[in-house]
């Protein structure tokens, strides 16, 4: 199939066949990262700019490695939110960057919809590397690739997503992604972190970790943002960990070949016990490896080829 998008803004806009195409492309590019010389000339002469308005290491580095492996030139701009407040608007920053003729802008921004705002106004392509509470589509795609590799399929699986659903763009993208590909999603967490209307996204909702993981093929733990403690969402970390932290005993409730995922970075001992994070079921590091492959695929599909 042909992939004819200027931007990659969210899972919501993608059709299942587009997702399959991205995953197939990622799988075919994956072996580049396993070669002694991890570089192909595909994107030679292209420029990819990453603009991060939130601190991030793994996503930014993953995009940068992906671009470099395809021989694109990369430039990273990390904007502290405080200086953005004092300085120019997002639009002015983006126009300034565009005037330097990059081919693609990769943006992470604390405001939901910021990449969409830019994509409507810029001629160059935009990849959403995480916008507010809204979406983190490249994370969901790398999660799909990881599950597909482990399970051989993306349909008919039981996927449990556990934690702070309300503030998680990973959860919003993953729920939609797994449902689009034909799996069943159950989300669990304290009711303070389960926004109303979650079931309208097609997910089953429960406050019981045990219920969510029973019979699960995939368990996705979300990072607990520790600043939520001061915002009345939780009582204590100790209690959160007791009721919503994934421990070895929970794995007995799941399918024997269950895989454990986490977008990182981990709060060891809070949402996930070290035994589970480092155990045989964990595919957390495969997720990181697949992140590079998926981002290579997206860079290739958006700015590789002749259509540009």
């Amino acid at each position: 199939m042909e992939f004819r998008r200027k931007d990659l803004l969210g899972i919501a806009e993608l059709a299942p066949e587009e997702i399959r195409h991205i995953l197939a492309t990622a799988a075919s590019l994956k072996d580049i990262s396993a070669r002694p010389i991890k570089k192909v000339p595909t994107l030679r002469g292209k420029t990819v700019v990453t603009v991060f308005y939130e601190p991030s290491t793994r996503t930014r580095v993953s995009f940068e490695i992906a671009a470099k492996r395809l021989s694109a030139d990369t430039l990273n701009l990390t904007v502290a939110a405080s200086s953005a407040v004092k300085g120019e608007t997002l639009m002015d920053t983006a126009h300034t960057l565009e005037a330097m003729r990059p081919d693609l802008l990769v943006i992470r921004h604390p405001a939901s919809g910021a990449p969409h705002y830019l994509a409507r106004r810029l001629k160059c392509g935009v990849i959403n590397a995480g916008d507010g509470l809204h979406e983190h589509p490249t994370q969901a795609l790398l999660d799909l690739l990881t599950v597909q590799e482990a399970k051989g399929t993306l349909s008919g699986l039981k996927v449990a997503i556990i934690g702070d659903i309300a503030h998680s763009r990973v959860a919003r993208s993953d729920i939609q992604a797994f449902i689009k590909m034909g799996s069943q999603v159950t989300v669990a967490g304290p009711a303070t972190m389960l926004p109303p209307f979650l079931s309208s996204l097609g997910a089953k909702v429960t406050c019981s970790l045990e219920e969510a993981v029973t019979g699960a093929d995939v368990i996705m733990m979300l990072r607990l943002q520790l600043e939520r403690m001061g915002q009345m969402y939780l009582s204590t970390l100790r209690e959160y960990s007791r009721y919503f932290g994934l421990a070895p005993r929970h794995l007995k409730l799941a399918q024997p070949d269950v895989i454990i995922m986490h977008p990182g970075p981990l709060n060891r001992g809070v949402e996930i016990s070290p035994e589970v994070a480092d155990g045989a079921h964990s595919v957390i590091l495969e997720q990181v490896t697949n992140g590079v492959a998926v981002r290579m695929a997206l860079l290739y599909l958006l700015i590789g080829g002749e259509k540009a």
Partner: peptide, 13 residues
């Protein structure tokens, strides 16, 4: 407004 649309857009309701 806090509802289905705010959930989908990732905007605080």
């Amino acid at each position: 407004h806090e509802g289905r649309v705010s959930l989908e857009l990732g905007l605080m309701g």
